[in-house]
C-alpha cells in the first residue's frame, strides 16, 4: 500500500483561506451540477417511506438491475398498459426478482420470485402508501399481487417463523 504524503504536489494557495473567488467557483459548481444532474424530486420522500417500515433490523437488499421494457423487447405488445419492468435485488443469501406490469387505470400487477436461502422464504410483505398486504410464497419461491396501486412500494421477505430475511429500499411501481 502506498502511503504517499498527499502534500507532495500541493499546488500553491492550497493552504489559503477561502476567498470570494472560491465561493463564486463553488456556487457555480453547485449550479452546474444541479442543472446537469438534479436530485430526484421524490428521493427524500422515498427514503422517509423506506425507514418507516417495521423490519428495521432486516438485511437491506441491494439493487442489482432494473430492466425496462423487457416485454416489449420480447415482442409482447401490451395494449395501452404500462410496459413491464423487472427489478432485481440481492443479498448475500437471496435474489429477489420483481416483475411489474400495468393493468391500466393506475393499477399494477406484481409478480415476484425469491431464490436462495434454501427455500426458507415463506411470506412476503408488500408495503404501499397507507397499506400493507402479506402474500404467501410458493414452494418454488414465487408470489404475486394481482392488483395494487401505482406509487411507492417496499417488499420484505419473511421465513416461516415471521423473521425478516430481507427488505428492499423503496421502489416505484
Amino acid at each position: 500500500m502506498t502511503t504517499q504524503d498527499p502534500r507532495h504536489d500541493e499546488p500553491s494557495g492550497a493552504g489559503d483561506p477561502l476567498d470570494t473567488g472560491d465561493r463564486r467557483v463553488l456556487a457555480d459548481l453547485a449550479r452546474i451540477h444541479g442543472h446537469l444532474d438534479p436530485v430526484p424530486a421524490d428521493l427524500a420522500a422515498r427514503a422517509r417511506f423506506a425507514v418507516a417500515m417495521a423490519e428495521v433490523e432486516a438485511e437491506v437488499a441491494r439493487l442489482v438491475s432494473t430492466d425496462h421494457g423487457a416485454g416489449a423487447r420480447a415482442g409482447v405488445r401490451s395494449s395501452g398498459a404500462a410496459t413491464a419492468r423487472t427489478i432485481t435485488f440481492s443479498t448475500d443469501d437471496h435474489t429477489l426478482t420483481l416483475m411489474i406490469g400495468g393493468s391500466g387505470h393506475g393499477r399494477r400487477r406484481l409478480d415476484g420470485w425469491i431464490a436462495g436461502g434454501a427455500g426458507s422464504a415463506a411470506l412476503v410483505g408488500l408495503r404501499m402508501v397507507g397499506s400493507t398486504v402479506d402474500v404467501e410464497v410458493s414452494d418454488e419461491g414465487r408470489f404475486g399481487v394481482d392488483d395494487m396501486p401505482a406509487g411507492m412500494a417496499q417488499v420484505s421477505v419473511h421465513d416461516a417463523d415471521g423473521g425478516a430475511l430481507l427488505v428492499t429500499p423503496t421502489f416505484l411501481v
Partner: peptide, 11 residues
C-alpha cells in the same frame, strides 16, 4: 482552507 483541488482549479 482552499485545499489542493480548489487551488488547482483556481490556478
Amino acid at each position: 482552507t482552499r485545499g489542493r483541488c480548489l487551488a488547482k482549479l483556481r490556478a
